[in-house]
C-alpha cells in the first residue's frame, strides 16, 4: 500500500485536542488500527456525529484508507453519519422489558414528544431509538438509557416526565 494519505485538508478541520486524543490512543495499542473505534468515539463526542470529512481525518491520523474507517463507522449502530438530537434516548424493547410494558412506554413517548419518522423531536432535543440491543438492565425493566445513563423501573408516565425534565433542565442552562 504505497499511497496512504499522511495528511489531508480534512485532518486540519479536527481540533487539536481531538487530534491529540487520537495520537494518544494510537500509541496505546500494539497496532495503530486498533485505535479506529476509540478515535471515532473521540470525534463523535466532539462533533455529535461523524461527517464524511471526519472519517478521512481519522484515516489520515491512523495511516488507513478512508474506506477502512467508513467500513467500521457504518457497521456499528452507535456511530451516527448525520446529526442526531442533542440527547439519544434508547428504549429497550427486548424480552424482559417487553414483558413489563416497554411497548406502551415507547408509544407514550412517541405520542407526547411528537416524533418524526426518524424518531426525532421537532426541536432537535431528542432522538428516540426503539431498535436497540438489550441494554443489560433487565432487573429494572422497563428501562431506557439517555446518553450514558440508565433509568429503570419506569412507567409510560414516568418515562415522559423524565424526558420532559431533561428538556426543561436544558432550557434553564441555555
Amino acid at each position: 500500500m504505497a499511497d496512504l494519505p499522511t495528511s489531508s485538508k480534512s485532518a486540519e478541520m479536527l481540533d487539536t485536542a481531538t487530534i491529540r486524543r487520537i495520537a494518544d490512543m494510537k500509541g496505546k495499542y500494539p497496532e495503530a488500527r486498533s485505535a479506529v473505534l476509540p478515535s471515532l468515539w473521540a470525534v463523535q463526542d466532539k462533533l455529535g456525529y461523524l461527517p464524511t470529512w471526519s472519517l478521512e481525518a481519522v484515516a489520515s491520523q491512523l495511516g488507513l484508507l478512508p474506506s477502512d474507517v467508513e467500513a467500521v463507522s457504518s457497521f456499528y449502530s452507535m456511530y451516527f453519519n448525520h446529526r442526531p438530537g442533542r440527547h439519544i434516548v434508547q428504549v429497550c424493547l427486548n424480552v424482559s422489558c417487553g414483558l413489563r410494558g416497554a411497548d406502551e412506554l415507547l408509544e407514550q413517548l412517541r405520542e407526547s414528544l411528537e416524533l418524526d419518522d426518524e424518531g426525532n423531536t421537532p426541536d432537535g432535543s431528542f432522538t428516540i431509538e426503539g431498535t436497540v440491543e438489550c441494554l443489560g438492565a433487565c432487573g429494572g425493566a422497563p428501562m431506557l438509557q439517555v446518553d450514558r445513563y440508565s433509568y429503570v423501573d419506569l412507567t409510560p408516565e414516568t418515562a415522559v416526565e423524565l424526558v420532559q425534565g431533561i428538556r426543561a433542565e436544558d432550557g434553564r442552562r441555555r
Binding site: 495499542y29 479506529v36 457497521f75 436497540v132 440491543e133
Partner: peptide, 28 residues
C-alpha cells in the same frame, strides 16, 4: 498494560472472534 476498549453497538462482538476483529479496528 491494561486497556479499556469501548465497542459501539454490535451484539455480535460478544462472539469471541468478532470481538477480536472489532478490537483490531474492523467490522465485527
Amino acid at each position: 498494560e491494561l486497556i479499556v476498549h469501548g465497542g459501539a453497538g454490535a451484539y455480535i462482538c460478544g462472539e469471541e472472534t468478532a470481538l477480536l476483529e472489532s478490537l483490531e479496528g474492523r467490522r465485527g
